[in-house]
Simulated scan of single mutants.
Amino acid sequence: MNIDEDTSAWLGCPTPLEMYQHQCALLEDELIQTQVMLRKARANIGGLVQMNDLLATGKAKAETELRMAMADLSRANVHTSEMSKDIMGLKMIASQNEHLRVENQCLRLQLRVLKGPQP
Protein backbone atom coordinates (compact mmCIF):
# COMPACT_ATOMS: atom_id res chain seq x y z
CA MET A 1 0.00 0.00 0.00
CA ASN A 2 1.42 3.33 -1.07
CA ILE A 3 0.73 6.09 1.56
CA ASP A 4 2.40 8.87 -0.39
CA GLU A 5 -0.27 8.79 -3.00
CA ASP A 6 -1.28 12.19 -4.45
CA THR A 7 -4.93 12.82 -3.43
CA SER A 8 -5.33 16.25 -5.04
CA ALA A 9 -6.98 14.76 -8.09
CA TRP A 10 -9.67 12.98 -6.14
CA LEU A 11 -13.23 14.01 -6.70
CA GLY A 12 -14.41 16.80 -4.38
CA CYS A 13 -11.00 18.01 -3.24
CA PRO A 14 -10.54 21.74 -3.93
CA THR A 15 -7.59 23.00 -5.84
CA PRO A 16 -5.35 25.62 -4.20
CA LEU A 17 -6.98 28.32 -6.37
CA GLU A 18 -10.46 27.27 -5.19
CA MET A 19 -9.28 27.34 -1.58
CA TYR A 20 -7.91 30.88 -2.05
CA GLN A 21 -11.15 31.99 -3.72
CA HIS A 22 -13.16 30.50 -0.86
CA GLN A 23 -10.93 32.23 1.70
CA CYS A 24 -11.38 35.53 -0.18
CA ALA A 25 -15.16 35.07 -0.14
CA LEU A 26 -15.07 34.44 3.63
CA LEU A 27 -12.92 37.54 4.17
CA GLU A 28 -15.25 39.65 2.00
CA ASP A 29 -18.25 38.48 4.05
CA GLU A 30 -16.41 39.33 7.27
CA LEU A 31 -15.50 42.74 5.88
CA ILE A 32 -19.12 43.45 4.90
CA GLN A 33 -20.33 42.38 8.35
CA THR A 34 -17.66 44.55 9.97
CA GLN A 35 -18.74 47.54 7.89
CA VAL A 36 -22.38 47.01 8.89
CA MET A 37 -21.36 46.74 12.54
CA LEU A 38 -19.22 49.87 12.17
CA ARG A 39 -22.17 51.82 10.73
CA LYS A 40 -24.37 50.68 13.61
CA ALA A 41 -21.68 51.60 16.12
CA ARG A 42 -21.32 55.07 14.59
CA ALA A 43 -25.08 55.55 14.74
CA ASN A 44 -25.08 54.41 18.38
CA ILE A 45 -22.24 56.79 19.19
CA GLY A 46 -24.15 59.63 17.54
CA GLY A 47 -27.22 58.78 19.61
CA LEU A 48 -25.14 58.59 22.78
CA VAL A 49 -23.58 61.98 22.04
CA GLN A 50 -27.08 63.47 21.60
CA MET A 51 -28.25 61.85 24.82
CA ASN A 52 -25.18 63.17 26.63
CA ASP A 53 -25.88 66.69 25.34
CA LEU A 54 -29.50 66.48 26.50
CA LEU A 55 -28.44 65.15 29.90
CA ALA A 56 -25.81 67.88 30.29
CA THR A 57 -28.40 70.53 29.41
CA GLY A 58 -30.89 69.00 31.83
CA LYS A 59 -28.25 68.80 34.54
CA ALA A 60 -27.32 72.46 34.09
CA LYS A 61 -31.00 73.45 34.23
CA ALA A 62 -31.56 71.34 37.37
CA GLU A 63 -28.49 72.86 39.03
CA THR A 64 -29.75 76.37 38.24
CA GLU A 65 -33.19 75.54 39.64
CA LEU A 66 -31.55 74.02 42.73
CA ARG A 67 -29.52 77.19 43.33
CA MET A 68 -32.68 79.28 42.96
CA ALA A 69 -34.57 77.02 45.36
CA MET A 70 -31.71 77.18 47.86
CA ALA A 71 -31.75 81.00 47.66
CA ASP A 72 -35.54 81.01 48.18
CA LEU A 73 -35.15 78.67 51.13
CA SER A 74 -32.48 80.89 52.64
CA ARG A 75 -34.72 83.95 52.27
CA ALA A 76 -37.62 82.03 53.82
CA ASN A 77 -35.42 80.99 56.76
CA VAL A 78 -34.40 84.62 57.35
CA HIS A 79 -38.04 85.73 57.16
CA THR A 80 -39.11 82.95 59.53
CA SER A 81 -36.38 83.92 61.98
CA GLU A 82 -37.52 87.54 61.92
CA MET A 83 -41.14 86.50 62.43
CA SER A 84 -40.09 84.21 65.28
CA LYS A 85 -38.41 87.18 66.99
CA ASP A 86 -41.59 89.24 66.55
CA ILE A 87 -43.72 86.43 67.95
CA MET A 88 -41.45 86.02 70.96
CA GLY A 89 -41.72 89.77 71.61
CA LEU A 90 -45.50 89.58 71.38
CA LYS A 91 -45.57 86.60 73.74
CA MET A 92 -43.48 88.52 76.26
CA ILE A 93 -45.87 91.49 76.00
CA ALA A 94 -48.87 89.17 76.39
CA SER A 95 -47.26 87.58 79.46
CA GLN A 96 -46.56 90.99 80.98
CA ASN A 97 -50.11 92.09 80.16
CA GLU A 98 -51.54 89.03 81.92
CA HIS A 99 -49.31 89.60 84.93
CA LEU A 100 -50.40 93.24 85.16
CA ARG A 101 -54.06 92.27 84.74
CA VAL A 102 -53.83 89.77 87.60
CA GLU A 103 -51.98 92.29 89.76
CA ASN A 104 -54.59 94.94 88.94
CA GLN A 105 -57.42 92.59 89.98
CA CYS A 106 -55.63 91.86 93.26
CA LEU A 107 -55.19 95.57 93.95
CA ARG A 108 -58.84 96.27 93.13
CA LEU A 109 -59.91 93.51 95.50
CA GLN A 110 -57.70 94.92 98.25
CA LEU A 111 -59.13 98.39 97.61
CA ARG A 112 -62.69 97.08 97.95
CA VAL A 113 -61.77 95.34 101.21
CA LEU A 114 -60.23 98.54 102.57
CA LYS A 115 -63.20 100.71 101.54
CA GLY A 116 -65.60 98.35 103.19
CA PRO A 117 -69.13 97.52 102.16
CA GLN A 118 -70.82 100.09 99.97
CA PRO A 119 -74.50 101.00 100.43
Rank of each mutant, 00 (worst) to 15 (best):
E28C: 09
D29K: 06
D29Q: 07
D29I: 06
E30H: 10
E30N: 15
L31W: 03
L31C: 02
I32N: 05
Q33M: 03
T34L: 04
T34P: 09
T34N: 15
T34C: 10
Q35W: 01
Q35S: 13
Q35D: 07
Q35V: 05
V36A: 06
V36C: 04
M37N: 08
M37P: 02
M37R: 15
M37L: 00
L38I: 00
R39K: 10
R39H: 09
R39P: 10
K40Q: 14
K40T: 11
R42K: 08
A43Y: 03
A43F: 04
N44A: 13
N44V: 10
G46T: 00
G47M: 10
G47P: 06
L48K: 03
V49P: 06
V49Q: 14
V49E: 14
Q50T: 15
Q50F: 14
N52M: 07
N52A: 14
N52K: 10
D53M: 05
D53P: 03
D53H: 08
L54G: 14
L54E: 13
L54Q: 14
L54W: 10
L55I: 15
L55T: 11
A56M: 09
T57G: 12
T57H: 11
G58L: 02
K59N: 14
K59F: 14
K61W: 08
K61G: 02
A62W: 04
A62T: 01
E63W: 01
E63C: 08
E63L: 13
T64Q: 05
T64H: 07
T64R: 11
T64K: 09
E65H: 02
E65D: 15
E65P: 02
E65Y: 04
L66P: 04
L66V: 08
L66M: 00
M68A: 06
A71D: 06
A71H: 01
A71N: 01
A71G: 03
D72F: 05
D72T: 03
D72I: 02
L73D: 02
S74N: 06
S74C: 05
R75H: 09
R75D: 04
N77F: 11
N77K: 09
V78C: 02
V78Y: 02
V78A: 12
V78N: 12
V78T: 02
H79L: 01
T80S: 13
S81Q: 05
S81A: 15
E82V: 08
M83T: 02
S84V: 05
S84H: 07
K85T: 13
D86P: 05
D86M: 11
D86R: 03
I87N: 07
I87V: 12
M88R: 12
G89Y: 00
G89M: 03
G89V: 00
G89R: 03
L90I: 07
L90V: 01
